[in-house]
Each structure stands twice: as structure tokens, then as C-alpha cells.
């Protein structure tokens, strides 16, 4: 039950893009078409969950025992960058079809602040076990996918209408995202927040 509430909370109430402002770059950059944004979303779910698993293990078994928590930022970013490279190589060798679908998104994910942001955030949450962290991260990444797919749908519709010249592109996208964030605020009393 705890986990159900946590998952709903992460996807709808504390949506990573629309409420926490993480991962805005891919959210604005890779949301032209529903298909590509879905691909991006799946890649993010995969990498983010894996990254948090590895970084939580490092945090709990290396950094905390050795009192090196001040190296957290530097360690995590290097681990994530290396992890993304490794995933890319492994995918290329083992599953070319999956690589073709997700490959182009992988390099973009290294600089996606959502991955590092969530990896750091879960280490700062009191009383989170590694399982808690992984569930939290997976749910958060699903929230990212949901937001980017809905947003891509809206942008596909927006291509069909005439938009004043100054508002075209980024400005109208941001304002649309604002209205979408407002809609997501409707979920805010759904579950106690995490």
C-alpha cells in the first residue's frame, strides 16, 4: 500500500518535470512527436532506475562507511556518465533493434539533470532503503514519460494552428507546459506527498 501511494505520488502529484523542474531540456527538446518522446521516456526509465540502483549502492556501501559523502556529486556524475556509455555498448552488442530505438537518446541522458537530481535526492530522503529508492526512481521516471508524451501530443496539435510570430517555438511551449502543470496541480490532494 505504501508503495502504491508512493508511485501515484511520484507520477501525478510531484511530477518530476511539472512540479520539480528536473529534466526540462529533453522535455522541451525531444517533444516534437509522440513516438520519439515515448522512446526518450522509455530510455529515461531504464537509465534512471539503473543509475539510482548503482548510486545508492555506492552511497550506502562506499561513501558513507568511508566518510566521503562530500565526493557525492563528483562520484555520481561520473558513475552516471560511465553507466550510460556502458548501456550503449551493451545494447549495441546484444540487442541491435532496441539500440536502434533508444540509442540516439542515450547520449542526451547523461546531461539530463533528472537522472543526477533523483539519484542525489533519494540519498537525502530520511529512512529510504535501497528498494524504496529504486521504486521511487522508477515511478518518477514513469512520471517523466507521462509528462513528455502528453506534452508531445499537445505540440503535435499546436503545429496545426496559427501562432503569433513572437510566441512560436519555445515561448508557446513553455506556456503550454505551464497550463499542463496547472492541470497536474489538480492531483495535489490525491495522496500524502513523499
Amino acid at each position: 500500500m505504501e508503495y502504491v501511494l508512493m508511485i501515484i505520488g511520484c507520477i501525478f502529484v510531484n511530477n518530476i518535470v511539472l512540479a520539480q523542474f528536473l529534466g526540462i531540456c529533453p522535455f522541451l527538446g525531444v517533444s516534437n512527436k509522440i513516438n520519439t518522446s515515448f522512446g526518450m521516456g522509455v530510455a529515461v526509465i531504464f537509465v534512471m532506475t539503473l543509475a539510482t540502483l548503482v548510486t545508492s549502492l555506492i552511497q550506502n556501501y562506499v561513501l558513507i562507511p568511508m566518510d566521503l559523502t562530500f565526493l557525492k556529486t563528483i562520484t555520481f556524475i561520473l558513475v552516471i556518465a560511465a553507466l550510460v556509455q556502458m548501456v550503449e555498448i551493451v545494447l549495441k552488442k546484444t540487442s541491435p533493434s532496441l539500440y536502434q530505438a533508444l540509442g540516439i537518446f542515450l547520449p542526451l541522458i547523461t546531461t539530463n539533470c533528472a537522472v543526477l537530481g533523483v539519484a542525489i535526492a533519494v540519498t537525502e530522503k530520511a529512512g529510504f532503503t535501497i528498494l524504496d529508492s529504486v521504486v521511487y526512481t522508477a515511478a518518477t521516471a514513469i512520471g517523466f514519460t507521462l509528462a513528455i508524451v502528453i506534452f508531445a501530443g499537445l505540440r503535435e496539435q499546436m503545429d496545426l494552428v496559427k501562432i503569433p510570430k513572437g510566441m512560436q517555438g519555445v515561448p508557446i511551449s513553455l506556456i503550454t507546459a505551464g497550463i499542463l502543470a496547472m492541470a497536474f496541480m489538480g492531483f495535489s490532494n490525491l495522496v500524502p506527498s513523499f
Partner: peptide, 10 residues
């Protein structure tokens, strides 16, 4: 004391 039910978690 603390709460973990806050809007920003804690």
C-alpha cells in the same frame, strides 16, 4: 520533531 508528510517531503 519532524514530518515526512510535507509538500516538499520533509
Amino acid at each position: 520533531t519532524y514530518t515526512d508528510k510535507a509538500f516538499k517531503s520533509y
